[in-house]
């Protein structure tokens, strides 16, 4: 069981890291701001989510596990909102 959880942790964190990496590459390589935004927000949310998922089995207590989830939720909330704001600003700039 413990071995299985460890394996899950490793897999999830590795996947999360991959998404972070991919997102950063996208940020650096994509041609325009909107697609960069796309790479950043979508992939970072997913990447962070996977890392949080991987860390959950290693949490010391239920409270710390809860804190991890809350962190992810907060990042989701602020990431989504700022992406909206940046997107609007970009559209306004284009007009």
């Amino acid at each position: 069981m413990i071995a299985f959880l460890d394996l899950l942790s490793i897999a999830a964190i590795a996947a999360g890291t991959f998404f972070f990496f991919a997102g950063t590459v996208g940020l650096l390589r994509f041609p325009d701001s909107l697609s960069r935004l796309h790479a950043l927000t979508k992939v970072d949310n997913l990447g962070l989510g996977l890392i949080v998922l991987g860390l959950l089995p290693r949490a010391e207590s239920a409270l710390s596990a809860l804190k991890l989830v809350v962190i992810w939720a907060l990042v989701l909330l602020s990431g989504a909102s700022t992406a909206q704001l940046i997107g609007r600003a970009l559209r306004r700039g284009r007009k």
Binding site: V70, L77, S78, S81, T82, Q84, R88
Partner: peptide, 15 residues
């Protein structure tokens, strides 16, 4: 007021 900003403030501030 920007709608996403208002949403963010209303959701984030209490937490």
């Amino acid at each position: 007021p920007d709608a996403p900003m208002v949403f963010l403030a209303q959701m984030l501030a209490p937490v």
